[in-house]
């Protein structure tokens, strides 16, 4: 029973990780590609780590919860790096499938004057 649950968690986690990377290759422009790793991969790794916590907790050596720490950390940091990447992309005015709001890229430039 436990083994089935573990196997399912592991497969789901690895599957989502793979789908996230697949999205990185398949999706058409940078802004859509940004969605794949921040969502699919984070949940994939999250469920892998939960599987790991479950595995070590049920081996009789006491409860093992420190994997939760990595999961929490990932869930806190993934949005931050996604946000920063989106800002960097707006700053460089990357090509986008969606119509950019007219003043966004310009405002980003005004706030962060750069001498590249």
């Amino acid at each position: 029973m436990l083994e089935i649950l573990l196997s399912l968690l592991i497969l789901a986690g690895a599957g989502f990780t793979c789908i996230g990377a697949l999205g990185l290759v398949r999706l058409p422009d940078f802004y859509t590609r940004l969605h794949a790793p921040t969502k699919a991969t984070t949940l994939g790794v999250g469920s892998l780590l939960v599987a790991s916590a479950l595995h070590f907790s049920t081996r009789g050596a006491g409860v093992s919860l420190h994997e939760i720490l990595v999961t929490l950390f990932l869930f806190v940091t993934a949005p931050v790096s996604a946000h920063l990447l989106a800002r960097a992309a707006l700053h460089l005015q990357l090509r986008s499938l969606a119509a950019l709001p007219p003043e966004a890229g310009q405002a980003e430039r005004d706030e962060n004057p750069v001498d590249h």
Partner: peptide, 8 residues
């Protein structure tokens, strides 16, 4: 993505 994959 690569570093998250490494964690996995």
């Amino acid at each position: 993505t690569l570093y998250i994959n490494a964690i996995a």
